[in-house]
Design a protein around this nucleic acid. Structure first.
Lengths: 161, 161
DNA sequence: TATTGTTATACTCTATAACTATA
DNA sequence: TATAGTTATAGAGTATAACAATA
C-alpha cells in the first residue's frame, strides 16, 4: 500500500544461503524445527505435544515401564520426565503403580483412555508424516533413516573429549 | 560394583523403541540433537556455537547484510539476533556500519579477524561433518538433502490453519 | 552406599510486545 | 504510519544438585 519508495527490496530480498547450504547441520535443524512444529500442531487438538505423545506411546507399548528407563529411551533427564508424566497422569491417560519388588519405583501403565488416545494420536501422526513426505520416494525415505541412524549412533566411537 | 542383586537389569535395559521408530520426527529430533551438540563441541574451541557460526558465515559471505535480512535467512526472530551480533561485534569479528541511505539500518561487515575465524571454523565444521558422515554413501547424502528440503518447503502449501 | 523419583534451580532457545530513531 | 534495531520479558526445553524413601 502507499506510494512505493525508491527502494529495491519490496519482495523477500534474496539473501544468498550459500554460506550455509553446504552443511547438513543447517538443513537438519531447519527441517527438524518445521517437522516438529507441524507435528505439534497436528496433535495439539488431542492435547498432546511430540514429547508427550512419545511418552504415552512408550508406556502404551511397554506397560510396566519404569520412569528411569523411559527417560533413557526418550533421551531426556529424569527430572524433566516428571512433569510430562504428571500431565499424562492428571488427565487419566496413564497410572503410576508401585512396584512390589522395588518400592522405590513406579510401573507406568496406560489407562483405557490412554490407549484410546494413543491410537488416535498415532493415526494423526502417521497421517501428518504421510503428508510431509508426500512427494518423497521410498528409496529416499529409507536413505534418510539410514543417515539419521548413522548420525545418531556414529557418534561416541570417534572421539571422547 | 558390590554384590549384584536378584535383578534382571544391570545392563542398559532393553526397552522397545518400536512405538516410536516408525516416525521420522523421532529420528530427526535425535539426530539433530546429536549432530548439533557434536558440532557445537567441535567449534567451541573457536568460541563459536552453531547459531553464532551461521551468523558469522552469512555476514562473511554477504557483506553489507542488514540485521532483519539476516534474521530472516537464519529463521530466527530479530530480537534474538541482537545478542548474537553483540557477541560477534564485541569480539571484533563483525562491525555494524550505518547505512547512509537508511539511517535506521546497519550494514553488517566482517572484520579481517572475522573472515579469518570464519575460514577456520568452516574447515572445522566441514571436517566434523565429514566425520559424522564417514560411512554414508554419496547417494544417501544427496537423498537426505532432498528429503530435508521437502520437509522444509513442503509445508506451507498444504494447510494454513 | 547406591538408586528411584522428586524438587528446586539455572541456562539456553524461542517468541511477543513495546520502545527509539528514523523513514 | 511503517520499518530497523533494541529492550524487556515470558515460555519452552534441557541440565545439574540435592533431598526422601527405599534398596
Amino acid at each position: 500500500m502507499a506510494k512505493r519508495q525508491v527502494r529495491e527490496e519490496a519482495e523477500p530480498v534474496a539473501v544468498s544461503d550459500a554460506a550455509l547450504t553446504r552443511f547438513l547441520g543447517y538443513h537438519l535443524k531447519r527441517a527438524q524445527t518445521v517437522l516438529m512444529g507441524d507435528m505439534n500442531a497436528a496433535i495439539a487438538p488431542l492435547g498432546l505435544r511430540m514429547i508427550t505423545y512419545s511418552a504415552l506411546a512408550m508406556v502404551a507399548e511397554n506397560p510396566g515401564l519404569r520412569q528411569s528407563h523411559l527417560a533413557d529411551a526418550l533421551s531426556i533427564e529424569r527430572p524433566n520426565l516428571v512433569v510430562i508424566l504428571d500431565d499424562l497422569e492428571e488427565r487419566g491417560l496413564i497410572s503410576r503403580d508401585r512396584v512390589p519388588t522395588d518400592r522405590r519405583a513406579y510401573a507406568l501403565m496406560p489407562t483405557l483412555a490412554g490407549r484410546k488416545l494413543y491410537e488416535e494420536a498415532t493415526a494423526a501422526v502417521a497421517a501428518h508424516e504421510a503428508r510431509m513426505l508426500a512427494g518423497v520416494s521410498a528409496e529416499d525415505r529409507a536413505a534418510v533413516l539410514r543417515v539419521l541412524g548413522a548420525i545418531r549412533h556414529g557418534k561416541g566411537g570417534e572421539e571422547h573429549g
